[in-house]
Design a protein around this nucleic acid. Structure first.
Lengths: 320, 320
DNA sequence: TGAAGTTGGTAAAAGCTTTTCTCAGTCCAA
DNA sequence: TTGGACTGAGAAAAGCTTTTACCAACTTCA
């Protein structure tokens, strides 16, 4: 212990924390010696006393990491400066596993929990509503009176469709995922609002092959073809772009395509690279982190759902 | 505290831990009451005493998560039964950030650290060699006398090329990543060993477009064309498959293609889905987790590099 | 019946910090 | 010279659990 190299335990503590009364010279000396011997206070002991472990838990059922990783990066980014570390717990829709992890986090006296997932309209398979630590929901459905962060899919979709309209596209089709997804309905709603009801919405699944098939369907139909495709995610968009190329239709000259998610691995590798909507998940994570920290410190936070704006990432699949 | 609902503090502790001497009936009663009031011991206090926090740190510079996520899943999977939680720290090749995270982990008295990355032949930008907690390296280069887990890329490559040979392919080309990657050289070495030196190795970058370009190069050359491609990763393979399709060459009828990584999002969505080599990163993580736990418990572990076998995942891009 | 052993439980210490309380000494003013 | 205020530092408690030492009561055996 640092006190061995100087004064008493309590004086050392006060010196290092800049608290209590003592001679400036003593304080300096203690600090210097502590630095020299590389003394670092034991966070366990500190936590035992202060009731703050400077630790939070991140619970997710998104094993693939598509959504969790950016969120995690944002949380970590926001909290590392506050000395807070993050337990990452992946629970694959397994209630027992989820409970095990929650219990472990609680035992370890986490200051708070952030729940995240892969879908806005689904709950994690564990009840977090009556814990004695604050809980914040990010990109997953929260409980009554909780704080929830989510992307503003309506605004994101509007961004995309308005962009297509702005560059002169008039027959914009929407190829998207399963209709029972809340975000699908929200994006489709915004699409209708901006583009009207002239072109159909094609509901399907979140895969490239569905994007491919949907283009086949659209182009097999008689009558005028779309001059733009707004796709529900980047994978669908990629499948669509591939199908268009196979039909000899040029992207973006003949048809503009916009995706959703800005999943680099898909969007940037498509030929041409996809213009797409970014949900700003890292920012979402950052805000969730700051919020759970505020709650942990006893600051009041207004409950409710906070929608964070999306951003349009312009690459080459639109022209304009 | 549970003692309020029963006996003395020490009796309660002994009852719950099945230690010490006491009446069976007393023990049962304490356990029952503890269960009823939902008592859970404070891991901080326990850790303070036992010098074990039941917490480990996972350090990674793979922000994208391609490699880290499976490794993390394996670690968590192996350790959750032992009550161990994992701090995930993403350090993006930033030495200062890395040090900050390591210090935070050490302050929190982690029982051990697992270092992982995105490349077998690169070190993390922080020195972990003289910590007073055990360190295990997984899928990143370790220090002298450390325990390191890595995939056996040579064996994986052999698996792929032998499979191609077995289904009757004779002119197998190898399109791969940058030659300065250790794993690239190892895979190429195994390729030469099995397939001989009849076809060239094309070194490039880890992208779809390189796979695409490489096929262009190969087919523009005069003479006989390859009847199989062994690609350095799934993205290259996907680019190659796309290029072949555009040339009207059928996969797998005319040319067989094998990738490397088994990155579902790429491999499964390619048309046709890719046969590929899986590095079994989850298993790698599991073993790393168990090893760091063993070390933390003071059990001796032989230092050295442990190569874990890869597995061939057969989909439709090979035929045979 | 008395010594030795067994049984069931409690008290106390240890682990490391932080915080509050206390104390000895110093300085100044009356 | 004495009383009060102030200063610098240490003692002790608290936070929660586990472990060791200990004690009182009971049993067993000679």
């Amino acid at each position: 212990m640092a006190s061995a190299a100087g004064v008493s335990i309590s004086t050392a503590s006060k010196a290092l924390n800049d608290t209590g009364r003592m001679g400036a010279e003593t304080r300096e000396r203690v600090k210097r010696i502590a630095g020299e011997i590389g003394y670092r206070p034991n966070a366990l002991a500190r936590g035992l006393l202060s009731k703050r472990s400077f630790t939070i838990g991140l619970l997710t059922n998104d094993t693939y990491g598509r959504f969790t990783l950016p969120v995690m990066a944002g949380i970590s980014d926001a909290l590392v400066d506050h000395g807070v570390s993050v337990f990452l717990c992946a629970i694959e829709d397994d209630p027992a596993l989820a409970q095990t992890h929650v219990d472990a986090m609680l035992d370890k006296q986490v200051d708070g929990i952030i729940a995240t997932g892969k879908r806005l309209d689904r709950r994690l398979p564990v009840d977090l509503s009556n814990l004695h630590v604050p809980v914040v929901y990010a990109f997953t459905e929260g409980t009554q009176n909780s704080v929830t962060f989510r992307s503003d899919d309506e605004q994101g979709a509007r961004l995309a469709v308005e962009w297509l309209a702005k560059i002169g596209r008039r027959r914009i089709a929407h190829i998207t995922g399963p209709e029972d997804f809340f975000s699908v309905r929200e994006r489709a709603g915004a699409y209708h609002q901006v583009a009207g009801h002239r072109e159909p919405v094609l509901y399907g699944v979140w895969s490239e092959s569905w994007g491919h098939d949907a283009v086949e369907q659209l182009w097999r139909r008689p009558g005028e073809k779309p001059d733009a495709l707004f796709c529900g995610n980047d994978q669908i968009a990629r499948g669509a772009v591939d199908a268009l190329r196979e039909r000899g239709i040029k992207v973006p000259q003949d048809v503009s395509v916009i995706g959703f998610d800005n999943w680099e691995i898909v969007a940037a590798q498509t030929r041409p690279p996809l213009t797409t909507v970014d949900m700003e998940l890292k920012e979402l994570g950052r805000q969730a982190g700051l919020t759970v920290l505020a709650l942990a410190e006893g600051r009041a936070v207004e409950p409710g759902v906070r929608k964070l704006p999306c951003r349009l990432v312009v690459r080459q699949s639109c022209g304009g």
